[in-house]
Design a protein around this nucleic acid. Structure first.
Lengths: 209, 209
DNA sequence: GTCTATACATGGATAGAC
DNA sequence: GTCTATCCATGTATAGAC
């Protein structure tokens, strides 16, 4: 049956990307992982790139859906930071972040993969952006920080650090620690009194140019 | 002559990586770019991966050397920020950041490339770390922010954003803008009076856990 | 020691079988 | 409509020529 084969291929593509990387994600390897004939990729998806693109969108939607309601229920940057830590750890373990990194790199020279990766990343960014714009409003950063830009910077940075982890686990650990400290700084602003907040705002205006 | 061929191959590998990405960086393609026979890669470097590894170290050293003295001459975070902007723009245009991204992704499943990329990135990180630890000392972040971790986070984040730019130029632009605002915040702290600095320090201690 | 011609492996894609 | 057997391009690696 067609639908079953298509899904086997999507799962096979995801598993191959996560376990062996884009370099090994050939039609033959993916088909073997999926347990189907190699030619089926071209029948069902047209090309390897298009299968990978479909798998990217499929996988990202699957993963983001896991967190959507819980993100909407958060009430402070501190809570977000706490939640983000466990979320990142879970996605890292699932190999999802590294997979996006692989596709992102491949997307540099494949328009099909570029569009798919932008879409997949976009799902994460959308969630981040909406929770950030809701929560930043309660801090002195309101009106100063741009939630859309921050969401994109955060998503891209995590992917960069995750890729970095693959070549220097210890260095990546210290990078994540440093960012957590920085995020904790912003979260700490929530707890300041109104006088201190005013001082901070003045500092921000001066820092801006 | 041997040395000339080796250098042609190193340059050819760099050009291929920058212009066509890791996916096209095969022995045939690189050799064609370098204008030499394909088999020479294996004679001089043993394998394609080892050539790419050598090229990565070669290229990173070349690029970092350009900035070493100028970074050492900087005297404030504001100056650093200004300089970093032009430096990043120049490297971006040269394709160097994207190349590191390509190698970083490939390094996930190739120990040889992983080691080389870690080394290449390490050169940038080393420069960043030394200038950051020197300049952060003059701000309220002194003792709070970890220069080693920040340098690694910065380098990895820029690579992530650069890869992101390949699939969503506009989104990457807003991400960079947001980070510049954030960096400007830290730079602004330099100009605060001692009372305000004390308030900020108190906030930081509260934000830390 | 340096390089080229050639062998062998893997990958993408499709014509045609069911 | 679904799938398999087969073709051709591209890739790695080396035996042997110079």
């Amino acid at each position: 049956m067609s639908a079953a084969t298509k899904e086997k291929l999507l799962e096979g593509a995801l598993r191959t990307l996560v376990e062996q990387g884009i370099a090994k994600a050939s039609a033959r390897t993916i088909a073997a992982t999926a347990g189907v004939g190699q030619g089926l990729i071209f029948y069902h998806f047209g090309s390897v790139d298009e299968l990978l693109a479909a798998a990217c969108r499929f996988g990202a939607e699957q993963r983001v859906a896991r967190y959507r309601e819980r993100l909407a229920a958060l009430n402070s940057l501190t809570e977000l930071l706490e939640f983000a830590r466990s979320m990142h750890e879970a996605e890292r373990a699932a190999g999802n972040v590294a997979m996006l990194g692989q596709l992102l790199a491949a997307g540099q020279s494949s328009p099909v993969l570029a569009a798919a990766t932008a879409d997949g990343l976009g799902l994460w960014i959308q969630e981040l952006e909406s929770v950030l714009s809701r929560l930043l409003a309660a801090t002195p950063l309101d009106g100063y920080a741009d939630p859309a830009g921050l969401a994109r910077a955060t998503a891209a940075s995590f992917i960069g650090i995750e890729l970095y982890e693959g070549v220097d686990p210890q260095g990546a650990g210290s990078a994540l620690d440093a960012l957590e400290q920085l995020a904790g700084l912003a979260a700490g602003l929530e707890g300041l009194g109104s006088l201190s907040q005013r001082v901070v705002r003045r500092g921000l205006r001066r820092g801006a140019r």
